[in-house]
Amino acid sequence: MRDFKLVFTGPMGVGKTTAIAAISETAPIATEVANADTSVAKATTTVGLDFGQVTLDNGDRLRLYGTPGQSRFDFMWKILVRDALGLAILLDNSRPDPLADLAQYLDGFAGALERMPCAVGVSRLPSHPTPTLDDYAQALAARGLVLPLLAVDPRRKDDVVALIETLLMQIEVLDEEAAP
């Protein structure tokens, strides 16, 4: 039996815990404390990590980790992403500057992104249509990055699974390339 890992990251309140709960076979284990950040209307926030899992049909486990949202815990990011199969960055389009949020996570995970499959999910697009996904694509291209970009609602399992599928496609082609 082996364990594999997918990591979800993104700003506080974006719905990382919710996304993990949408596909985890058990309720996510969260390490939450009272939120001291008054800019975000949220009673609690994750300080360590969120954890959920799905068991595969041969007994292997896919573990789903959510990083703490606040950047003061960014030392955890590198620890969590080590040896992960892929990274999903969740962004909230209702925040004041979601493109700056994107930049923050691209910087924070720059080392991992050189090779690791990564996809970006943007939530609350229906109520906050700008920046558009094309704007995000342009911002990524300006940094020389091509990452899958999807509109997601972290509460919807189908959306979370679609985001993960883009990671699986990247893993598949990288493995094809690495094969002799």
């Binding site: 594999f4 596909i23 799905v54 068991t55 595969l56 049909d57 041969n58 292997d60 896919l62 699974v161 993960i164 599928e165 699986l168 893993i171 598949e172 493995d175 094809e176 690495a178 094969a179």
Partner: peptide, 17 residues
């Protein structure tokens, strides 16, 4: 690579893909 393909297939099955 074969092993990894097996893993991806299992994840996809588990997620209903």
């Amino acid at each position: 690579a074969q092993h990894k393909r097996g893993l991806l297939s299992r994840i996809r099955r588990r997620l209903g893909l």
